[in-house]
Design a protein around this nucleic acid. Structure first.
Lengths: 226, 226
DNA sequence: CTTCTACTATTAGTATTTTCATAATTTTTA
DNA sequence: TAAAAATTATGAAAATACTAATAGTAGAAG
């Protein structure tokens, strides 16, 4: 998540930068309106934190001009001026939110979350379960290992997903039968064994570190260490 | 522009209603969380103004539940509690903005403008969905690929739109049935398969790179790479 | 009335899942 | 420790499930 901070007071700027980086945002700081426009125009940011009182071009003007250029990055306006009129002007200039200094850092964080939420909602982050060098991609329904993409059938995928969600834990055949085949366990069949075999061929065979292990008399376990 | 106001204090409610109607918003007022959920679920609103302290289900819970249901209508949270923690909780519950009572009406208006702007801006930029050399034009309801304009029927278009909005993700027939046909999945029909076939004929057949892919036993996925 | 759309029915072909027989391995028993 | 028993692995065949493709029908739209 990339953030552009536009703030000329060094104290505030470094305080923000540090705090946000601790939350693992990628932070860029600029000190005046001129650079703010330039950076926002040339780079992509998830949010812009924009102080109103900055050199050259003030924050309101920066917001207005960015919007005119069609840049829709959410803007959180920051200022020492707390009157309603100031807020109204700021919001109408194109800001999406407005925060009055001094503010508590956790409120800033909450407002940032609110601003970026809509964005991340749409960009549904891809759901992936990882173990060692193996990736199970729940959206694309494929597995990747060592750079290679491996196709699995529906049952194979279902079985591997269940095992991965329960990695480092021995899973009995009865449990697998119930959760993956959703039926009570039937001793007269060895489908599970067969599918374990299928999985091994596809995801373990050509790799030195095996991840599927048999626990004789107990079931199977998925893990990396031997 | 339609607004839902959720506020149980009659004075505040009627003050808001009157003021907003003067600004030519269409206003609906409900007095408790139960009705709020019901109305927001069944009707379309551009913004919801949501008081925190309301009967039955409090505002925070209403916001949370609406978001869980996938309703993304901007929410402006309203409350007498002004502490930072309250704001943080409110914003994290799913609110897009937070206003502390008492507030000036023009600040409310400004924040409403900011909230609806963001929303309507998004609407306008999403008028064309692209993937590779395929364009889905939501205004003209046509598809273009390789310079050619392809006409689709309503159902074909609806299906392709849904798939494109979920590109790079395997979509099950159940999901398609629910979202495109809005009915629960019925195994006794193969409409979906047939429509996939229609789409393939129209948008994939004469092009080397296919974008509709079958994942046997799982559903369909739209993507370019093989 | 004709054309178009949404859908159903059916088929053949293919991919997947399961069963089964046998081999290999591990555990138990003597 | 060696043989027997139990458990698991594997390959191939059989059964089943799934999908593509096409033709046909009812009803809406023009």
């Amino acid at each position: 998540m990339k953030i552009l901070i536009v703030e000329d007071e060094p104290k505030v700027a470094s305080f923000l930068k540090q705090g946000l980086e601790e939350q693992s945002y990628e932070v860029t700081v600029v000190f005046d309106g001129y650079f703010a426009k330039k950076m926002a125009g040339e780079n992509y940011y998830d949010v812009i934190i924009l102080d109103v009182l900055i050199p050259y071009i003030n924050g309101l003007e920066v917001a207005k001009q960015l919007r005119n250029e069609g840049i829709k990055t959410p803007i959180l306006m920051l200022t020492a001026l707390g009157s309603t009129d100031d807020k109204v002007v700021g919001l109408d200039a194109g800001a999406d939110d407005y925060l009055v200094k001094p503010f508590e850092f956790k409120e800033l964080l909450a407002r940032l979350r609110a601003l970026t939420k809509r964005f991340t909602d749409n960009m549904h982050e891809q759901r992936v379960i990882k173990l060692h060098d193996l990736e199970l991609d729940l959206d694309r329904k494929v597995v990747r290992r060592g750079g290679k993409t491996i196709d699995l059938t529906a049952k194979e995928f279902g079985l591997l997903e269940y095992l991965l969600r329960n990695k480092n834990r021995v899973i009995s055949r009865a449990e697998i039968s119930e959760k993956v085949w959703d039926s009570s366990f039937d001793t007269s069949t060895n489908v599970i064994d067969v599918y374990i075999n299928f999985l091994r061929k596809k995801i373990d065979k050509e790799f030195p570190t095996k991840i599927i292990h048999t626990m004789v008399g107990m079931g199977y376990i998925i893990k990396t260490e031997d």
